[in-house]
């Protein structure tokens, strides 16, 4: 919203804060003993990612993230966890005590380390700049309000029109699939 923000130390600070938040809660997701706690942690991590989106100037995506993930997908998750009894701790079979934690650490270190190193070795000239701002375009009613939603919408319905249709088809198939899965239960009961 405030064009000067992205070049300020506040911007970097916000990115790092949201990033730490995301990584911290993300690690809770994979370590929490009860699935419902993992789900809560995931909600938190998703909010942090939404915050990152917002800081990076993708406001529409931030809103969609919260709406779709937190309001939709995570409610579904919690619903399913309730159905399958998420209160109980999951019985994690461990051939050797602590091997799971060890494996997780190794995985995080190897994959994360290589990605981080790769990112670090990238060109330092990479600089993030805000997308086109309303200040630059005189079309918006109010100066200072980003046109991100409009721009994403335009892109979505012009350049990405075909993928958009394909995605809607995918969603339709998913709906049909979910309905079939839910219906299957009643068939079982009848016989």
């Amino acid at each position: 919203m405030y064009p000067d923000l992205q070049s300020s130390p506040w911007f970097l600070g916000a990115v790092i804060a949201f990033g730490l938040w995301a990584v911290a809660t993300g690690s809770v997701v994979i370590t929490a003993q009860r699935p419902v706690h993992a789900a809560l942690a995931l909600v938190s991590a998703l909010m942090a990612v939404a915050g990152l989106f917002a800081v990076l100037g993708a406001e529409f995506l931030a809103g969609a993230q919260v709406l779709v993930y937190v309001g939709g997908v995570m409610v579904l998750f919690v619903f399913v966890i309730m159905v399958v009894g998420g209160g109980r701790k999951t019985a994690e079979v461990e051939p050797v005590s602590g091997v799971r934690f060890l494996a997780a650490t190794v995985v995080v270190l190897v994959i994360g380390g290589s990605i981080v190193l790769g990112a670090r070795s990238a060109q330092p000239a990479f600089e993030l700049r805000p997308g086109p701002r309303a200040a630059a375009s005189k079309d918006a009613v109010r100066a200072g309000v980003s046109r991100n939603t409009e721009d994403v919408g335009t892109d979505l319905y012009t350049r990405a029109a075909l993928p958009f249709e394909v995605a809607s088809l995918l969603l339709l198939v998913a709906i049909v699939g979910a309905v079939v899965l839910a219906k299957g239960r009643r068939v079982e009961q009848d016989d």
């Binding site: 309730m82 159905v83 009894g85 209160g87 109980r88 009961q189």
Partner: peptide, 14 residues
């Protein structure tokens, strides 16, 4: 549903 006695036995509909 979260049944009171989560017996892993194959009482499918129970």
């Amino acid at each position: 549903m979260a049944s009171d006695t989560p017996s892993a036995a194959a009482h499918v509909f129970e």
